[in-house]
Design a protein around this nucleic acid. Sequence first.
DNA 1: GTTAACGTTTTACGGCGTAATGCGTTAGGA
DNA 2: TCCTAACGCATTACGCCGTAAAACGTTAAC
Lengths: 265, 265
Amino acid sequence: MVVYAGQGENKRTMALLWRAHGVIEEKVSPGPKQQLSVDEIVEAAIELADSEGMPAVSMRTVGKLLGRSGMALYTYVPSKSELVDLMYDHALGELPTEYDLSVGWRQAVVAWAHDYWAFFLRHPWVLQVSSARPVLGPNEFASVDTLVRLLDGIGLPALRQRRIVGTLTNFVRGAARMIAESRQAPGATGVSDDEWWYARSAALQEVVPDLAERFPSVIRVESEGATPSDEDDDTPYLEREATATFKAGLTVLLDGIETAITQSS
Amino acid sequence: MVVYAGQGENKRTMALLWRAHGVIEEKVSPGPKQQLSVDEIVEAAIELADSEGMPAVSMRTVGKLLGRSGMALYTYVPSKSELVDLMYDHALGELPTEYDLSVGWRQAVVAWAHDYWAFFLRHPWVLQVSSARPVLGPNEFASVDTLVRLLDGIGLPALRQRRIVGTLTNFVRGAARMIAESRQAPGATGVSDDEWWYARSAALQEVVPDLAERFPSVIRVESEGATPSDEDDDTPYLEREATATFKAGLTVLLDGIETAITQSS
DNA sequence: GTTAACGTTTTACGGCGTAATGCGTTAGGA
DNA sequence: TCCTAACGCATTACGCCGTAAAACGTTAAC
């Protein structure tokens, strides 16, 4: 059995996140032993979220995946929202925490950004977990710490460094979100991205024939220099565009950071 | 009655978005006249989303607000997801479409960014509408067109301009999302942002006493130079931080764009 | 052997989106 | 003028959701 020294939701949540068994007294007590573990539940939920998307993650479905009823999970986890927090922090655990700084901070940050980006594309549901109220789990701390360290010795005052860390994190999340959302357009395996896009554009053309006259600037900018698709690259249009926007945007941001460094020194 | 020249979901959606009454044949037909309008419904839904948040917007609640059953709305709108698209595009209509470029592109973009940002804070639910699959409504086109025009004459090739438009849009959305999410932490009017933050930190401190040794870089960067709160400014901590990150990040981005301009010329 | 704590399941409640059904209103043609 | 068919709208129903409450069976401690 588990007893919480102080009390309160927050304490219990933190104990769960940090597996702080030191703070928790384990008491032997009657009744059957627990047959599952928080980790098992969290991993099953992540599996489900990866393959079927966040909406498919319900207490009942996670329970079923473990051969249990939905309610059984409530012995391990106080509520679904806590389970989601645990999923979030657990997933963050797979991010690298060390980067080679001998090649310069800029290259290191590019590597970090690509890893972070790829992480969100592997686990798109993470983007649906709020980023504003931090979860304060160990892996969240570790991942922020990793990025902070990349910017540690380049002569930025702490405050500026903090802003830039926030901006970079936000930037990668937003860029990844564009792709992640485009991948789950009409539910599971409905029409593909390109088919949807084509049908929409055709309908638009028909309903608004004078589109090009009404919005000349967008039309010009959107039509010029479309990213060419490689021979055997079947990445959908929106996704290629979003990827290119990510890379270009990262360059712009890094250039801006260099300016900030120059101004600080 | 309404007949669609071609057919298909997309056509109907576009007609709804663009109010393309030209494409639509109005036929007189028996039965009672419609007592509501799409606009009324969309505005009621927006009202609800503004005041109670997106989760409070259900077909039943919107119907109730109009003195009608939930199912009544289905005569006007094919499904909830279409209603959400209409809400999104309708709300975008309140954005300015003209900016003074005589003060230079940079100042104009700053003004745009602040308007866009304030818009998201007025209608935080907009951030929960996917941005990847564009809705292709008139106001979405207008708002993108507005930003594109701000960057039109500064010597950027079209492709670069497109990437920068995407990056700026993404940036503001992400920055606004941080605040919007921090405002809706524990449901409606539960604990305030600051109380929550304090309780969490206290719990964390207790569960993980060696935090500062384990993540020295984050701790240092997070603790230095905290934004001072004005005398009578009761903006919560997370929100002040997020606002500062937005402003600093915008500067960094604009500096990066200036570098891009220099390189293009 | 009794008791009390515990893990788990079952049932139940009020929410959701929306399909199906039915009712009452209304315009056009007879 | 009446009939009919189309239509707006409400009601009901289905299968989901999170989770409170209760019931049941297992088990350790006394």
